[in-house]
Amino acid sequence: MYSVRPDEQAAIKKNAAEINATVTTVAHDFTPADISSLKGADVLCLAQHGAIGTAEDYAKLAAIGIKHIALRITGYDIIDLKAAQANGIKVTNVPAYSPRSVGEMTLTHAMVLLRHLNESKARMLQGDFSWGGLEADEIHTLTVGIIGVGKIGSAVARLFDALGATIIANDPIHRPELSDILTYVDKDTLLKTADIVTVHTPLDDTTHHLIDADAFAKMKNTAIFLNCARGPISDTGALINALETKQIAAAGIDSIEDENGIFGDNLKGQDVPNPRLLKLLQMPNVSVSPHMAFYTKPAVENMVAIAFHDADVIAQGQISEHEVTA
């Protein structure tokens, strides 16, 4: 198991005992240089955002005995699924470790921005405790547009609905169980109508820069944009331009392009190698969290438990419901 954090150790020990598995944990991200150390292992368990290697590396993994790559995260864009499949390696992910955790972070960013908490804090640090310019809307008066209404998007919809918002959504799959709380619309209508636009799609070739300059230009100039999914779903340069030119009012992000090696790490006293992130951090109308929307106790426990369950299922020759294929 790679990229293992201290907070995962208890869950790892518990789940390993339940399926009688021998586990070796490593703190750093997996790289091809680690392949030789995997001799004797059947499963490679990962939780990272950097690609794991080339097609040749997958052949090496298979040759050394790896039969299954178990991701204890949702995103599987780091995996070359065709290479894994060609080498007989099963791949699983954790699609629903805790939709509520990401949903609550999405709501948190929305509230911080709606109530101008960043701006008011910056003023107070300068001794300005006045109210001018800080008047806020209330969520029940707003329309929230959700792009991607899977398990996480559904949780987001239910949270905003509980606060009285009007919910519109865009997704190729229409879920009948949500018919009482949202209305499906096309993407352009959502972008033009919503007061809050939030994305909850997976990251793949079809969603890379799904929110680009054209999308930002269609949003209201009072709109708030939220990305608690994956950074490259939105074009960071276009986002900064939309904020600087007041095409949109504010943004909340939990993930950003080129975050690998930054979010999740302690870089205190070091240069942060992402100038666009630094620019966003300086903007009072931007709320940033370091890809920690998932990071709750229930989510951590579930991510480990589901990864171990999938390893056990596949080891027994069965098919995991979480298997992803090319």
Rank of each mutant, 00 (worst) to 15 (best):
T25E: 14
A62F: 10
M292R: 09
V185Q: 03
P99T: 00
L61N: 13
I314T: 05
A21F: 06
I319F: 13
T201K: 01
K90Y: 14
P176W: 00
S320P: 12
T201F: 06
I152N: 09
A250Q: 02
A213H: 09
E301L: 01
V43D: 12
F294N: 09
K121V: 13
L210M: 15
A315W: 06
T245C: 05
H109G: 09
K67C: 11
D310Y: 02
T141I: 00
K218R: 11
H291P: 13
A169M: 03
I314L: 05
T206K: 05
G50Q: 14
I211P: 14
K268F: 14
A55Y: 09
A299D: 15
A229T: 05
G261F: 02
N118F: 04
P298I: 00
L114Q: 11
E104S: 03
P6M: 01
D29Y: 10
D188Y: 05
I173R: 11
H309L: 12
P95R: 02
Q9P: 03
L203M: 11
E138Y: 04
V300K: 10
K192W: 02
P290A: 07
L81V: 07
N20Q: 12
R100N: 11
S320R: 09
I139V: 10
M105K: 10
R100P: 02
G132N: 13
I78E: 06
A17Y: 00
D235R: 01
A307P: 15
A250G: 05
A215G: 09
G264T: 08
L114P: 15
G148I: 04
E104M: 03
A307I: 04
D161V: 00
L142T: 05
S36C: 02
S130F: 10
D212C: 01
I262D: 09
A215M: 07
A47T: 08
G252W: 02
E323Q: 15
V4S: 07
E301Y: 02
C45I: 00
I306P: 10
V91I: 08
K218I: 00
G145N: 06
D77M: 05
P232G: 05
D161C: 06
I19Y: 06
N221D: 13
I181F: 05
R175F: 08
A315D: 14
S98L: 04
S234Q: 15
T183V: 02
M1H: 10
A293C: 09
S287G: 10
I196Q: 01
P95H: 03
D205A: 13
T207I: 01
Q316I: 02
L267C: 04
C228F: 08
Q48T: 08
